[in-house]
Design a protein around this nucleic acid. Structure first.
Lengths: 239, 239
DNA sequence: TAGATTGTTAATCGATTAACAATC
DNA sequence: TAGATTGTTAATCGATTAACAATC
């Protein structure tokens, strides 16, 4: 069994980019799209695009290209974004509140249906249309509502405890914003969201620039060939 | 000229992980560390670790290993995190406020020295010890204070305008949290922070799990071999 | 039909892993 | 000294790119 073909990390990173673009095209009424078209827009090799799209199973037609609506649907299906997953949010500090108000999340397969916190001042209030509930209830409600995703936006010290409560409630995947390595059973999917790397890439380039300017001469020189990259993967800033 | 050796994307992604671990060790008083030691902790091949550390130029000694303080310093130096870069933050909504209060940022080479917004209700208030200033002043102040990093945490519609103002002020690198592709001169370093990919990885695994449970039988089955991954790169959840 | 684009196989490139001599 | 660990070169693996026949 287990024929889930191994999708490369790199492909998985690019699929959301394709989807993003294709959704725009769809809105503009586009019907067909070719790989070279996508590649041009995203600075990617057309063959690469074709290979990536292959995993979605949506067939293209020689000379014609791919159907935009079909492709959008196929990618959404592949990523599991066609059916929105319900999520619980733990922690409604600034970050948690930001996530609650980020309605776009729904386009990426996640819908926060309830928020939890320990702060009595916050409990009972409404944020972004959702009630804030006492954290203690997260386990029971997750089980009852069959919620599959838990988002952790609490301070580092509380993160492990919250993760335990989520797991106890049957939550299957945790999106973790706390800067700690969570200890959970192996079957649980954990996605750590770290700002580390972005900052590493950014300041590394900045440092390299500076070193170069010094080398070139005393005068201030703003660098000359810096690049635009996305959080992961690279895509040039472009028209 | 231009001997800045090409550091692989992958290496750059792992260096912050090493640094994080080594800082902990340093705090615990550790003096020496070996690549196998680091590898064990981070689930990485020791040779890989050695190769990565090579770029920092910090030498190890056969049989002995690497000096922890030296290595910490070398990585910080390499990433440009030894000298903290001053940054301006545009937009003090929930996300912006979260960033302002995230004091840990300073460990990653970034120190927000001022925040800007257009909302008169916010201007003049103090957030996380920093005054909120009118957005219009960002260009002038950036030039005057020689601030090199701009953080964009404004709504998508305003992002481009803010980027223009930052560039006009001589800002060299933009950390962009708005979901738009910024148009800036090539010399400007842009780091887009996207949640896309994290969610793609998460829900893809969730969808794969579900498909498998269905295949295995009608009964609810929580999946069996899900993995823990970090935002980018992989590291197992671990002791 | 002619020509563009897909689907697919082969070649290249780069990153990871293995092997091993040098050395503290 | 003996043995662990570095530094470095070679082998493997996987992902990207090129080539090209099939086809609409």
């Amino acid at each position: 069994m287990r024929k889930t073909k191994p999708v490369s990390h790199a492909t998985l990173r690019r699929l959301p980019q394709y989807l993003h673009l294709l959704r725009q095209r769809l809105e503009q009424g586009a019907v067909r799209v070719s790989c070279s078209d996508i590649g041009r827009e995203l600075q990617l090799d057309p063959t690469q695009v074709r290979k990536d799209l292959e995993v979605t199973g949506s067939p293209g037609r020689p000379r014609i290209g791919f159907s935009v609506p079909d492709l959008v649907e196929a990618i959404e299906e592949f990523l599991g974004w066609n059916r929105v997953n319900e999520a619980f949010l733990a922690g409604v500090g600034h970050l948690g509140t930001a996530l609650l108000n980020y309605s776009r999340l729904r386009n990426y397969g996640v819908h926060i249906v309830a928020a939890f916190d320990t702060d009595p001042a916050k409990i009972g209030t409404e944020l972004g249309g959702r009630q804030v509930l006492p954290l203690e209830r997260i386990t029971g409600l997750a089980g009852r509502m069959h919620v599959r995703i838990g988002i952790i936006a609490v301070p580092a010290e509380e993160a492990q405890r919250v993760a335990d409560m989520m797991v106890a409630g049957g939550i299957q995947a945790i999106w973790n914003f706390a800067p700690v390595s969570l200890q959970v059973p192996k079957r649980i999917i954990v996605q750590n969201e770290e700002l580390y790397y972005s900052l590493a890439a950014l300041s590394r380039k900045l440092a390299a620039n500076r070193k170069q300017s010094l080398k070139i001469g005393g005068a201030t020189h703003h660098g000359t060939d810096a690049v635009t990259t996305t959080g992961r993967g690279q895509r040039a800033g472009q028209v």
